[in-house]
Design a protein around this nucleic acid. Structure first.
Lengths: 150, 150
DNA sequence: TATTGTTATACTCTATAACTATA
DNA sequence: TATAGTTATAGAGTATAACAATA
């Protein structure tokens, strides 16, 4: 009979960075699928939900908070405005305050619900483990370079 | 005096997916910096270290294991071969077995050391928490869609 | 002088589709 | 019919540089 194939030896299994990256790819792909029916992508939802919680936040504040550079924030905000989801009103001569429109608030509500279902699926995968320590560990890793992405 | 700026409210802080993504970006950027002096990128190192641990592994096996599609594995393997880091020897008429050259093994050793230093910096950020539960949680998340990336 | 917003551009990673050759 | 490898191509996300307008 045929020799059983030797299993692949995985020298990366114990690496935090590797497992972090693989888990992130899986979860982002699942989130993208969950949001697609709403016509939204992950980055657009983080913007919508943060604007909902911070009316009149400026583009640069939003970008700093989400780790999105100004150069990449501009087309994102322009897209949301063109779709009638946010209003951009000048706060001074150079800053725009971002606020959800009624349509944007309604879509944010639907997106928030979709995100909650998606999150619950993954939280369940942790089994007995509560998500708190995981989130704390991830926040600690992020804090090593909090300015990454600004 | 000026009003203190109201702090930004973060509705995403409790989301596993968001923290996972942000932590992954920070850690991948740091890894890329740690590997740049060796002329390697993160994806190339995962390939080198996995080939080192699995001599004569085929491209498709390697890609399945690392979550890299065949279409993206081809140029990666071609680059490593062109740099003299791996040998590609036919196992049958259609598969290539990948093995490190002496230069590839030497570079893999240096890369492994650089990765260990990088990993230790991040493990230290966890403070009292041992990395085991974090890695287990990340592996559980990945297991929700283990075929992602094949 | 520093900040905000914008545009242009490039690089990396990931993805699908189509093709050839071989099992 | 399925698998291995390749090529071409497209879509996101992230990055820098340069610019105009404003603080």
């Amino acid at each position: 009979m045929a020799d059983p194939l030797p299993p692949v030896v995985d020298p990366l299994a114990g690496l935090i960075g590797y497992q972090l990256r693989r888990a992130s790819v899986v979860m982002m792909a699942d989130l993208a699928e969950a949001l697609a029916p709403h016509g939204l992508r992950p980055g657009e939802v983080t913007a919508l939900l943060t604007i909902a919680a911070n009316p009149a936040i400026t583009q640069s504040e939003l970008g700093r908070h989400l780790g999105i550079k100004r150069a990449n924030m501009a087309p994102l905000a322009a897209t949301l405005a063109a779709r009638g989801l946010i209003d951009r009103t000048p706060v001074d001569g150079r800053s725009h305050g971002l606020t959800l429109t009624a349509a944007g608030a309604a879509l944010a509500d639907r997106a928030r619900a979709a995100v909650a279902v998606h999150e619950a699926r993954f939280a369940a995968a942790l089994g007995d483990q509560p998500p708190g320590p995981l989130i704390a560990a991830l926040a600690a890793i992020r804090a090593i370079d909090p300015d990454r992405g600004e």
